[in-house]
């Protein structure tokens, strides 16, 4: 049972991989790390979640229904947004809406730009392409947006005195927040820029590794990887900029007065 020269992993071998975790667990006990339970739970989750994903994707790829793809994209976007909001505890309430909007716009535009213009799939909702690409777009823009939002509000809070002085001099919300917006966007984009710069020298990107292991020609895999890296960077940039520009105002009143952390109300 081989596909294009790739060696297929059998079920016994898959179980054998768990022995890595047995060794790690034994080490944990020996050194007294107290991580045995966490390791066990994480290992079981890896098996269950990824096998479930494989089964779901196998079904989605075989039925090839447009609405199944759309529902799946919707669920992925909502879950990613929840993670973003949870990671920015200092953010004001009402953030979910703007984060969801940013994630959705980014995921839709970048995913379908890639599938329609670069990969040129014959059917717009072709799940074999749309789902993995949307997954990478959402996963990466999620990290960027979360970093940017977390930094935005923590930087605003650290500049409370400066923002009061600026506002007292007649600055509007944008003028008072601008320095923090810059910081936030840099924080959101720098990991992506760094990984682009290190790709191919420091590490072989995950997607390319997967394709090569599955039997693809390394140069063909490289082309895909370049598209993916640029797409992910664009998604991170668009998503972070949208999310930050839509939410910085929430730290201010309509009169342009900055609301300190305690006055903003809880994130929702």
């Amino acid at each position: 049972m081989t596909a294009e020269g790739a060696v297929v992993i059998g079920w016994p071998q898959l179980l054998l991989a768990a022995s890595f975790m047995l060794i790690t667990g034994a080490l944990s006990v020996a050194i007294g790390l107290g991580l045995v339970k966490d390791l066990a739970v994480a290992s079981v989750r890896t098996y269950v979640q990824l096998l479930a994903l494989g089964l779901v994707l196998r079904w989605v790829f075989s039925v090839r229904l447009w609405w199944v793809v759309v529902v799946l994209l919707g669920v992925m976007t909502v879950v990613a947004t929840r993670i973003v909001v949870k990671r920015a505890p200092d953010a004001p309430g009402g953030l979910f809406g703007s984060a969801l909007f940013s994630m959705a716009i980014t995921a839709i535009t970048v995913t379908f730009a890639v599938t329609a213009l670069i990969v040129r799939v014959p059917v717009w909702y072709e799940p074999r392409y749309v789902i993995p690409i949307a997954g990478m777009v959402l996963g990466n823009s999620m990290t960027g947006i979360a970093l940017a939002l977390e930094r935005l509000f923590s930087d605003l809070d650290s500049r409370t005195g400066e923002i009061l002085a600026l506002t007292a001099l007649g600055a509007d919300r944008w003028e008072a927040a601008r320095a923090s917006v810059r910081m936030a966007l840099r924080a959101g984009l720098i990991p992506t820029i760094n990984s682009m710069a290190a790709a191919g020298i420091v590490f072989i990107p995950g997607m390319m590794t997967g394709q090569v292991l599955a039997g693809a020609d390394p140069l063909e895999a490289t082309k895909y990887q370049i598209v993916v890296m640029l797409m992910v960077s664009a998604a991170t940039a668009i998503g972070s900029i949208l999310a930050v520009m839509l939410s910085y105002r929430r730290a201010f009143t309509a009169d342009g007065v900055f609301l300190e952390k305690g006055l903003r109300g809880p994130a929702s």
């Binding site: 002085a165 001099l169 003028e175």
Partner: peptide
């Protein structure tokens, strides 16, 4: 606020030169 100007107790000069700080208010939209 440009006409009724508050100087907060904690002096907040912005990173940069004295000249940039003195000119900053004139760059504001208000």
């Amino acid at each position: 606020r440009t006409k009724v100007a508050l100087l907060p107790q904690r002096t907040a000069l912005f990173p940069g030169t004295v000249e940039e700080n003195l000119l900053l208010p004139f760059a504001l939209k208000s």
